[in-house]
């Protein structure tokens, strides 16, 4: 017996997809917030970590921040295109955002290689344990973001589910905001 399908209702002014993403970002804030809080506590306990932080590649961190900020811009342009119904442009912009993510990961891989070859592995000291924990967890989120961006770009190209462009853009901005705090915490405090 097929029940009469009640109309898709939205009780608040915020579309259902976006309500879900905001709650998802809230739980992510709690996870990253918890990890960053532990790092900040230990930075306060061991002021001498500043000279260990000096061994991070400051220019790489700065460049990566610029890359993520730029890819946030392309994410917004993708969202604006989706709002205007320009499916192809939205999909195109999402791909540029994903490219930004890949550049970010490439720079990260270079950084890790440089640091590991210099013996700065997670077990080297507690600062480096936190460095790999925070940047590693962030890099995982960037990777997941790239996959999501490409998936939504593919479906957006056919004009399907343009609403998802905004949702994946929201997630990408969150990943950018996390890096905005990780950069000064890990790199600049030298």
């Amino acid at each position: 017996m097929q029940a009469h399908a009640t109309v898709a209702r939205e009780s608040t002014s915020v579309p259902t997809g976006r309500v879900g993403v905001w709650w998802f970002l809230a739980s992510e804030i709690a996870i990253f917030g918890g990890a960053v809080a532990c790092y900040v506590l230990f930075r306060a306990r061991y002021p001498d970590w500043a000279d260990q932080a000096a061994r991070t590649l400051g220019w790489a961190g700065a460049f990566n921040t610029a890359v993520l900020l730029t890819s946030s811009l392309s994410a917004v342009l993708a969202h604006h295109a989706a709002v205007r119904g320009e499916a192809v442009r939205a999909s195109h912009m999402l791909r540029w955002t994903a490219v930004g993510g890949l550049v970010f990961l490439a720079v990260k891989v270079y950084e890790y290689a440089h640091e590991i070859s210099a013996g700065l592995v997670p077990a080297q000291s507690l600062f480096w344990s936190f460095y790999y924990l925070l940047t590693g967890l962030h890099a995982l989120h960037v990777t997941a973001g790239i996959v999501a961006l490409l998936a939504v770009a593919a479906s957006a190209r056919r004009g399907h589910a343009l609403g998802r462009v905004e949702l994946v853009a929201l997630y990408w901005h969150f990943v950018d905001v996390v890096w905005i705090f990780l950069f000064p915490l890990l790199y600049l405090s030298s």
Partner: peptide, 21 residues
Amino acid sequence: VVFGSLAVVAALLAGTIDDIV
């Protein structure tokens, strides 16, 4: 929702500063 989750992390920080720092 956004600032509430930040406040929760702040509560964790406030409660553990004395023990960890």
